[in-house]
Design a protein around this nucleic acid. Structure first.
Lengths: 239, 239
DNA sequence: CGATTAATTGAGCGGACTCAAAGCTAGTGG
DNA sequence: CCACTAGCTTTGAGTCCGCTCAATTAATCG
């Protein structure tokens, strides 16, 4: 599949990139990487900036190299719902459609590798493995969306907040399902967490205080949180 | 692509099947249809019967020929969330994974065309167009899941119920965005509607009564509902 | 027809919301 | 260094929407 023997032929950018190992670019051979590399552009997006607007035309895709992106939907009256978070090395954009029905915004500072829609779609034609990789990410996102639907529809405020901390814990420090202390930084502010959980900022704040008083987490400077008891946190999610 | 010229070669079952036109089987040529047809089996599933159990092994896929299937997730303490509905000619099952993380159950009587996981996966290998079709359905499901997340997280009880009626209206009678009367039959009972909307049966019932008193719908025998004002219904969804 | 399950309606409660105020942070400039 | 601002977060008090519990009515099916 991949020709790691000729590692030196691989574009410098790609050589260090996580997307080539765990992301969609893992489906590409050296020649395709070189071809794609000619049209890619690295970009740094500041926290809060919008990449793709809901219901609007867009003709660029991207891979996340670093940072967290949030996908959200907005109602005319201002109500908002965050419908997903994406981490490196996720692929950003809606394949096979020129309009996304969610907006994509940088939750933290974001380092991206962007490329034109057309370039990707051409490579897909010659390399079905790439579409397979994209399909697998779509399936993973669908599983996550449905798991979150259970959280939104059936869990209490405290379970929701625990679930959010748990989600961040498992995504930023994967495979560390340990009971030991685990330090993490929340990529969202309170208003965003509330829009992700279908709650208000006040309720989120109160429930975090409850988790703190229950000795499950400890709050540190900034948005840093120390998970003191991973088992209890998992349990607090409703499991 | 498809060889409709040799229509007579197409298996009898497939000739009348919606899945060949609008569903995933549209990606297959006559030869592939014949190949798949050797291992397919038509099945009638009674309302309420479970096809696939959450977290359990399963090695069959299916296309819906008639009826509605519901996808749901269950918590240990019995809380339940319906995370999607599927209509003909949708494909049922989780590609590339032997365990589904949702259970699939017949919401109404269901007529299916089932086939072994292996058969489909082999055809995918020789025909990337099939994977593309599956990918497109997955993307559509993801869009729908995210739209529903907005409903679950940010809409009021009355908006939720209106949204449900609207969803059924648009899925059972597509492209009839008319102001004229539209008769439809709800495929779910109250307890299922409440599990879909993250509400209780009582609240669902009360909100339906409100829609009736607002002259937006009219309730008839069984689960039939007459939509008297499609525009008002759309508006009642929060739009 | 009764038996059973589904749906409606009512009364009262409580969890999450609203509104309001005070406490933190980080950034800016004197 | 502190003063000042603007944005974010926490905390409190009171309200209301949707839940719970309970009773009735309506459908469905032997």
């Amino acid at each position: 599949m991949r020709q790691d023997i000729h590692n030196s032929d691989i574009p410098a950018l790609c050589r260090a990139c996580e997307a080539r190992h765990k992301g969609v670019c893992g489906a590409l051979n050296t020649e395709q990487l070189i071809r794609l590399n000619k049209v890619t552009r690295q970009e740094i997006i500041k926290s809060g900036e919008e990449l793709i607007t809901e219901k609007e035309q867009n003709n660029r895709y991207a891979n996340i190299l670093r940072g967290v992106a949030k996908l959200s939907k907005l109602m005319e009256d201002g109500r908002q719902q965050i419908v997903g978070l994406q981490f490196a090395p996720d692929f950003l954009g809606r394949p096979f459609s020129s309009v996304s029905d969610v907006s994509i915004e940088a939750a933290t500072e974001l380092q991206l590798c962007t490329f034109p829609k057309k370039a990707l779609e051409e490579i897909i034609k010659s390399s079905p493995v790439l579409e397979h990789k994209l399909h697998e990410q779509t399936l993973r996102e669908l599983d996550e969306a449905r798991a979150w639907m259970l959280t939104l529809g059936r869990k209490t405020a405290s379970e929701k907040v625990a679930n959010f901390v748990y989600l961040i814990a498992t995504h930023t420090n994967p495979e560390e399902n340990q009971t030991k202390n685990l330090l993490l930084e929340l990529p969202l502010k309170r208003s965003e967490i509330s829009d992700f959980l279908g709650l208000t900022i006040e309720t989120v704040s109160r429930q975090l205080t409850k988790l703190r008083k229950a000795d499950i987490i400890e709050m540190q400077e900034g948005r840093k949180i120390l998970v003191k008891d991973f088992g209890k946190l998992y349990h607090a999610c409703g499991h």
